[in-house]
Amino acid sequence: MTELLQQLVDGIGRGSIYALLALGIAVIFGVMHLVNFAHGELITVSAYVSYALFTLGLDWWVLVPAILASSMLTALGIEFAAFRWVRNSSDFTMVLTSFGVHFVVQAIFVMAVSANRRTFARPGWLFETVSVGGVNLEIYDLVVIGFTLITLAGTVWLVRRTMFGMTLRAAAEDFEAARLMGVRSNRVIRGAFVLSGILAGVASIFWLMRTGQADPTAGLTPMLKGVLAALIGGLGSLGGAVLGGLALGLVEVLLISRLPDGLVGLTDGMVFVCIALLFVFRPQGMVTIRRAERV
């Protein structure tokens, strides 16, 4: 029983960071119907900002606001440089644009910095654990779970209780109708990117605390995990993104722990089989949302 409990705790810890990553992807999908594969570049840029600040001798107290700011500004920059020009194009064009941004940012860092990994110090408390009833709880996991809940609550409040949120939801429901009603398209899209940048920033802080490194593909794995979590939860749903992240983390940990020795190497493949099975029975993901509720 303790072993299962430990695995559940490990899975929720792992899944919480995926949930944070999925939230930013869900926001952009809700407004633009775009699965933004360039979301990981916000983490890549944050990683290099972190590395640069560390080389200047600054610590995590400075890094946290710097990561949030750099992620938000990068999101705005990507919207201005890439997505603005294809906003009225097909969904497929926008997805291709997001791939283009991903490869361009990667190439810029390879050319301007290096293909080599750059390392910076992780916070001292990162791997500390507390034991409760025989179950080890990582302080890091507890912090991430807490911030995931706070971030989810804050985002839901912003979307449901503020004028900005109302314009986001209106744009998500029918962009053209919202414009006719006086919603300014540039402002709402910019706002969505700022929000997704902040959410990516929060996820980056915790992701980078763990990895402690910058490289041109630093954002690739978190982006893929975030997209998977958002898909599992139901694209466009904030609560679904969090549920999807937690489900992904739990499934990964349970497979790693429970598969027979010779089959553990199939963990990643089995995760995708589970996702495929989910989509057979629930193509919309775990959470069903009416279009009007999207974001």
């Binding site: 490990d10 899975g11 080890n136 794995t221 722990s257 553990v264 963990t267």
Partner: peptide, 22 residues
């Protein structure tokens, strides 16, 4: 023991660490 992990991607080894602790 041989523990499996995903090269390059995995950033959380808590499940393997807890197994090893046992």
């Amino acid at each position: 023991a041989d523990y499996n992990y995903v090269p390059i991607e995995d950033v959380d080894f808590s499940s393997q660490a807890n197994e090893m602790a046992n």
